[in-house]
């Protein structure tokens, strides 16, 4: 076994290796999510012309109970922005990308621990911080890429179905959705990094995602929820519809929370005994 140039071996490991690997191993999954959500959007858009400006339908919707309307963000379906909000951005879209993110986040370190591949990975001359950091960055890129389908399909369909939505506002709500998903993905990562347990991480992140959605959507009706509503990241990011009201600086709260959770994940993972079952 000939040693090559020892100086070549001295060179630090190439940065981004973990990042690229994490994205490439998820490429099929991401493609699947992108295609699936794209089809969902396309199907929704195809229906829009039938209710666009339909007064009878608007009346029907107005007759829904308030609780139902709040919970499912039933608004004015007869306009483009109202329709997109009701069908995509209030619930279905965010919930699906939050799901993607929390599955990914919970698997990021704990998956390798549970599958026992973490030993070989971390025995390399790479810091745990770098591994978690690069894998998190891959998740951020992947989740954002999937979420972008919610802008791409409506923009592509706009000339046909005439949604009447501004590009900036559409991008704003897509970014807000992606950041919400990343927050819950990072929450799952934080639990997983601290405990090594994927199931627990998923449970905690999913429970908090649902709770914060309900707080955000029901606070209009339930007065005792109103004081706690600002605590819901869901409310801060997408609760006040960015599609009609435009970008809000409140999104930075979500970004800040995510940053804190990333820092917590890096710190706890650094300290732990790994893959000890």
């Amino acid at each position: 076994m000939a040693s090559g140039s020892p100086h070549r071996a001295l060179r630090a490991g190439r940065g981004g290796t973990v990042f690229r690997r994490a994205l490439s191993e998820h490429r099929l999954v991401l493609g699947g999510w992108f295609a699936g959500l794209g089809l969902y959007c396309a199907a929704m858009l195809a229906v829009f012309p039938t209710i666009h400006g339909n007064r009878a339908f608007a009346k029907l919707v107005e007759s829904y109970p308030d609780a139902f309307r709040s919970m499912f963000a039933v608004a004015d379906f007869t306009t483009g922005p109202g329709y997109l909000r009701g069908e995509i951005f209030s619930l279905m879209g965010p919930i699906l990308v939050v799901l993607l993110a929390l599955l990914w986040g919970s698997d990021l370190t704990a998956g390798e621990e549970e599958r026992h591949t973490i030993d070989l990975l971390l025995a390399n001359p790479v810091s745990r911080r770098r591994v978690v950091g690069e894998k998190w960055a891959a998740m951020a890129v992947g989740v954002t890429a999937v979420t972008s389908v919610f802008a791409i399909v409506p923009l592509a369909g706009n000339p046909i179905v005439h949604l009447g939505v501004g590009v900036a506002r559409l991008l704003g709500v897509v970014v807000a959705t992606a950041f919400t998903a990343l927050l819950f993905g990072t929450l799952a990562l934080a639990v997983a990094a601290a405990t090594g347990r994927r199931g627990l991480a998923r449970g905690v992140a999913a429970a908090l995602a649902v709770a914060s959605y309900l707080v955000s959507s029901l606070a209009d009706l339930v007065s005792f929820l109103r004081p706690v509503r600002p605590l819901s990241p869901w409310y801060q990011a997408i609760g006040v519809d960015p599609l009609t009201h435009g970008f809000s600086w409140r999104l930075l709260i979500v970004v800040g929370l995510t940053a804190v959770l990333v820092a917590v994940s890096l710190a706890t993972f650094e300290r732990r005994d790994l893959a000890v079952s």
Partner: peptide
């Protein structure tokens, strides 16, 4: 290092796996 409980990335080929770790270490080629 060779772990006692050896689990490799199942989806990679043997060559991809070795090259992946080589990249993390800055060699060999």
């Amino acid at each position: 290092y060779l772990p006692g409980d050896l689990v490799l990335y199942e989806k990679m080929t043997a060559g991809e796996l070795l090259l992946h770790f080589a990249r993390l270490r800055g060699g060999p080629g």
